[in-house]
Design a protein around this nucleic acid. Structure first.
Length: 148
DNA sequence: GACGGAAATT
DNA sequence: AATTTCCGTC
């Protein structure tokens, strides 16, 4: 029993959006669904209220900047019930995504990473049809029209 | 800050 | 398997 930390994950910001059931890992534990870090990142990127914490980088499709590493780590730690989470540990998890081809680092740019959309997200996760709230920013670069 | 090995945790 | 934790190295 983890008091104060619900099994069912709630999206940050209290918005209505969340990934469908099958998008979550259901591995061993029968009742527990664990959100993936990159799902969480996309969730934050989708909301305007977190624009000062993490946001899409204009110009490069799929590239985002963590403007407030401590806050992102705090939010992630809250979601996963890991109060001791920090950017050092969160970034290690992001680094494991390099070999998995989910993300890669934008070298030289501080706190900047980029999703490998074409390689993994689009082919395997068609449910990701979220749109940026700001029309001037289109991280999906043309894919949005295909996704509808 | 960023990287990645190693061990622990869930 | 996907992190979380810890840490030496650059």
């Amino acid at each position: 029993m983890k008091a104060g930390c619900s099994i069912v994950d709630k999206p940050e910001g209290g918005g209505g959006y969340h990934f469908p059931e099958w998008a979550y890992k259901t591995e061993s534990s029968p009742g527990s669904r664990q959100i993936q870090l990159w799902h969480f990142i996309l969730e934050l990127l989708q909301k305007e209220e977190f624009r000062h914490v993490i946001a899409w980088q204009q110009g490069e499709y799929g590239e985002f900047v963590i403007k407030d590493p401590d806050e992102v780590a705090r939010l992630w730690g809250r979601r996963k019930c890991k109060p001791q989470m920090n950017y050092d540990k969160l970034s290690r998890a992001l680094r494991y995504y390099y070999n998995k081809r989910i993300l890669h680092k934008t070298k030289g740019k501080r706190f900047t990473y980029k999703f490998n959309f074409n390689k993994l997200v689009m082919p395997n996760y068609p449910f990701i049809n979220i749109r940026p709230n700001d029309p001037s920013i289109d991280p999906w670069g043309g894919w949005s029209s295909i996704l509808g």
